[in-house]
Design a protein around this nucleic acid. Structure first.
Lengths: 339, 339
DNA sequence: CCACCTTATGTTAAGGTTAACATCATGCTG
DNA sequence: CAGCATGATGTTAACCTTAACATAAGGTGG
C-alpha cells in the first residue's frame, strides 16, 4: 500500500489508523493522516466489502423517480442513510416486477446491507434471492399481511375506501370512476388494492358499482384530463368523479375548466395522491394525501434499527393517509365549505 | 466456489460461462447455468471490482431530488445507464460543496467508472480527488468554460438574460426581481449566474438595476408566494416581476389571485425553470424551460461514450433552453397573445 | 531482576473473482 | 502418423483490506 510505504509502516497500521484509531500511537496516526491527505488516498471499498462481508450500501428500488412522489421518498431515505454513513444504490423498476427481479439480482452482487423495495408485488425469484441473501428488506407504500419483512406505508384498500366514502359524505350520489385500466392495475398492486377499496365503499354505501372509464396512460396530464372530461360530458347523470391518481384529477380539472364545465358546481372531482400540483390548480384537488417523505425516512430508520440489532422484529409501520378536501368537491353536508 | 463444486468444474469455468460464454462448451455452460439457478448464485461484485478495477457503478450527485427537476434528470440517467448495465449510486449534496466533497470522497472508494455532478461549484479537494482517481466526470446543468471535463447543460447567464429580455419584449418597463438572496446564490452557482444574466439584460435594454426582493426559503411555495405578493403590493410602480425560480413564480400567481390582483392584467409574472406546476396554475407561468430529463440522458450517454472510448474528447453539450410564454405575461407586442 | 502485562506494530491468510499462462485432448494437414 | 493448430478446461497469482495471531519493546509488581 502506497500510504503505508510513505509513512514507513505496515498496511495493517494504516487500516487501524482509519478504523480503530485508539489502537495506534498518536504520532503514527497523525503521520498516516498526513500521508492520506497528501496522496489523496481513498480506501478501496470493494476489498473492504470482500473482507468484512459488509458493504455500507443500501439498495433502493422505486417504480419511477421523475416528477413522482417517490422522489420525496428517496430524498427521505437519502437524508436518513446519509447521516448514518450508508450509501444509496438506486434503481427504477418502471412498475415491472420482472425488471425489479433483474435489478435486485444484479444489486445483490454488491452485498448490500439492506434493501428497500416499493410495494409487495415481487416475483417469486425476487423473494427467493432476497431470502437467500439473508438481507433485511423494507417494503414501502403498502402495509398489509403480504409484507415479507419490515414495512412502512399504509393500507391502500383503506385509502381507496376513504376517498370514496368522503365523496358520499359530500353528498355525491352518482359518482364515476376514472381508473388506470386493468393492465396497469395488474402491474400496480397498490392501485388495484385502492380500486378494491373504492368498490367496497360503493357497496357498503348501498350503491351499485360505479360507472368506470379507464385511462390509457395515467401519468400524462393532458391526455388523461381529456379522457376524464370526455367521460364526464358523455355521462350527464354523473355528479362527481373519483380519479385514480392526482395526475388524472388535475388534468380533469384543467380540461373541464377549458370546456366550460364548472368544478365543483357542475361536477365534483377527487384524486388519489397529493403531488404539489394537487394544491395548486384552481380549484384545488380534493385528494388522499400520502406522507411520501416520511415513508422514506421511516423506512430508512427501520432498516438502520435492524442493522443495529439484527434480532429486532419485523416491524410494520402504518403511517396512514389524510383525505384533504379542497375546492374541487363541495363541502361535507353540514360542515364548512373547503377553501 | 459453490457452483463450481456443484457442476464439478473449476471456478474459472464458471467465471467464463458468465463473462465469455463462447469460450465454454455449450453443455458445460448449460450445466453451469442450471447450477446458478438452482443455488441462487449471485456473483460477488466486490471481488469482481477488485480484480478488474472496474465496478460498473456510476456515481451521481444532485443538490436535491424531492419535487425538483433533478428527479427528472436522475430518471434520465437511470434509464440510460440501466440499458447499458451500469448501476447508479446516488447522493444529494443539498447545495453544499463541502457535503459534496465528503460524498465524492466516500463514493470514490467504490471505484466508480464515472461520476456525474451537478454544476461547476466544487471544492478544490473535490477536484483533486476526482483528478487523482482519473475517473471520467460529467457536469450537468451548467455549460461554461469552468467545466472540468465533460458537460451537459446550458448557459445559465443566457437563460437569465433571455427571460429578462422576453419581459422587455412583452412591453414591461418597470420589472422587479424576486430573487433567492445572496446566501443562496453563494451556494447556488447557477442561480447566481442567471441573476447576472438578468442584470445584464436590464443594462443592455437601457434600464437601471431592477428593484429586488429576496426570498428566504425559495423552495416553499406558500412562503415565497406571500413575499412576492407583498413585494408587488408595496411597489405599485412595478408592472411585472421576474421570479428566480418557478416555485416563487407559481406561489406569486396563487397569492396574487387570492389578494385580488389580476395576473397578467395588473402585473406580469415570470419564473425560471419549468416543473409541472408552472403549466398547471392559471394563468400558466411564463418561464424558461430546461430539458431536465434530456440533460440526464445525455449526461449518461456522454459518460458511456467515454467509457467505450477512453480517448474521446471532453465534449460539452449545450442542450439550450426555451422561453415559454404563458398566461402570466401579456403577449409580445405585435404578436399573438399566449394561450 | 524475572515473570507477566500492556501497548504498538507486524505477519499471514483469507475473502471471490479473473488475467495470464498451462495443460490436455481432439482433429486436421501434409 | 508426426506435427501442430484449436478448443476446453485447469492452475496460479493478484486485486486490497482486515481478522487473527505473533512479536517486540517498555512497564509493573513482587
Amino acid at each position: 500500500m502506497d500510504v503505508a510505504d510513505h509513512v514507513g509502516v505496515s498496511a495493517m497500521t494504516v487500516s487501524r489508523a482509519l478504523n480503530q484509531p485508539d489502537k495506534v500511537a498518536e504520532a503514527t496516526r497523525e503521520r498516516v493522516q498526513e500521508a492520506i491527505e497528501a496522496l489523496g488516498y481513498v480506501p478501496t471499498l470493494a476489498a473492504n466489502t470482500l473482507r468484512r462481508e459488509r458493504s455500507g450500501v443500501i439498495v433502493v428500488v422505486v417504480p419511477t423517480i421523475d416528477q413522482s412522489v417517490f422522489s420525496d421518498t428517496v430524498q427521505g431515505i437519502s437524508n436518513t442513510l446519509d447521516k448514518a454513513g450508508y450509501q444509496l444504490l438506486l434503481a427504477c423498476a418502471s412498475y415491472d416486477p420482472d425488471k425489479e427481479e433483474d435489478l435486485v439480482k444484479a444489486f445483490l452482487g454488491h452485498r448490500p446491507d439492506g434493501v428497500i423495495l416499493t410495494g409487495t408485488l415481487h416475483t417469486p425469484t425476487t423473494r427467493r434471492h432476497l431470502a437467500n441473501a439473508g438481507v433485511p428488506v423494507v417494503e414501502m407504500w403498502d402495509v398489509s399481511d403480504e409484507n415479507m419483512d419490515m414495512a412502512v406505508g399504509f393500507n391502500n384498500f383503506e385509502a381507496g375506501y376513504a376517498i370514496a366514502q368522503h365523496m358520499f359524505r359530500c353528498g355525491y350520489e352518482r359518482v364515476g370512476y376514472v381508473a388506470t385500466g386493468p393492465a396497469h392495475e395488474a402491474r400496480e398492486n397498490r392501485a388495484a388494492t385502492r380500486s378494491k377499496g373504492i368498490y367496497a365503499a360503493f357497496s357498503d354505501a348501498g350503491f351499485a358499482e360505479p360507472v368506470r372509464m379507464n385511462v390509457r396512460d395515467p401519468l400524462i396530464i393532458q391526455d388523461s384530463g381529456r379522457i376524464a372530461a370526455d367521460f364526464v360530458l358523455s355521462h350527464p347523470d354523473i355528479d362527481a368523479i373519483i380519479c385514480a391518481n392526482e395526475i388524472i384529477g388535475v388534468g380533469a380539472i384543467n380540461e373541464l375548466r377549458e370546456r366550460g364545465v364548472s368544478v365543483p358546481d357542475d361536477i365534483g372531482v377527487s384524486g388519489i395522491g397529493d403531488a404539489n400540483i394537487a394544491a395548486l390548480v384552481s380549484p384545488g384537488l380534493t385528494t388522499v394525501q400520502f406522507p411520501g417523505y416520511e415513508i422514506g425516512t421511516q423506512s430508512a430508520e427501520l432498516l438502520l434499527a435492524r442493522l443495529d440489532d439484527p434480532t429486532s422484529t419485523s416491524e410494520r409501520r402504518d403511517v396512514g393517509f389524510d383525505v384533504v378536501p379542497r375546492g374541487s368537491t363541495v363541502g361535507i353536508k353540514g360542515c364548512d365549505q373547503p377553501r
